[in-house]
Computed example of a mutant assay.
Amino acid sequence: MLIEQIPLENGCALCLRFEMQKYPLLVIRAEKGFLMCGYLNVSAAETLGDTAAKVKGVQSFEDMLKAPVVEVTKFAEELGIEVGITGREALEKMF
């Protein structure tokens, strides 16, 4: 497992990378929520009351920051996070 920190404009995010068989499982955690890769399930995050946004087709933390958000929980929507913004924009709203 790889753990890194990425400084963003509104705070510092914690990045987790877990090597799977073909592609990595990636999560970037901010103060109020997290950005997830395609391995993880938005409906599960919503059921658990989490603020989460999902990006797909990513293999690095930098890919996640550039990729468009494809799905969000209602809690993320309440912070102004919407489908189509970049992962970086979504994370900035989670501080």
Rank of each mutant, 00 (worst) to 15 (best):
M1Q: 06
M1K: 11
I6K: 14
I6H: 05
L8I: 06
L8Q: 08
L8R: 08
G11Q: 07
C12R: 13
A13L: 03
A13E: 04
C15T: 09
L16C: 04
R17E: 14
F18Q: 14
E19F: 01
K22H: 13
Y23S: 12
Y23C: 05
L26H: 10
L26R: 07
L26P: 00
L26I: 02
R29A: 11
E31L: 11
E31T: 10
E31N: 05
K32R: 15
K32F: 07
K32L: 15
G33C: 10
F34G: 14
M36R: 01
C37M: 03
C37D: 12
L40T: 09
N41T: 02
N41L: 08
N41V: 05
V42N: 07
A45W: 01
A45V: 01
T47V: 05
T47Y: 13
L48C: 07
L48T: 08
G49C: 04
D50Q: 13
T51V: 14
T51P: 05
A52H: 04
A52S: 09
K56I: 14
K56P: 00
G57R: 04
Q59W: 07
S60R: 07
F61Y: 15
L65K: 10
L65Y: 11
K66Y: 04
K66Q: 15
K66W: 00
K66V: 00
A67N: 01
P68Y: 11
V69M: 06
V69F: 09
V69I: 15
V69S: 08
V70K: 09
V72D: 08
T73V: 03
T73A: 05
K74N: 11
F75Y: 15
F75H: 15
A76K: 08
E78L: 13
E78S: 15
G80M: 02
I81K: 01
E82L: 09
E82I: 09
G84D: 08
G84R: 06
G84C: 11
I85H: 01
T86A: 11
T86N: 09
E89V: 08
A90Q: 03
E92A: 02
E92R: 03
M94L: 12
F95M: 04
F95A: 07
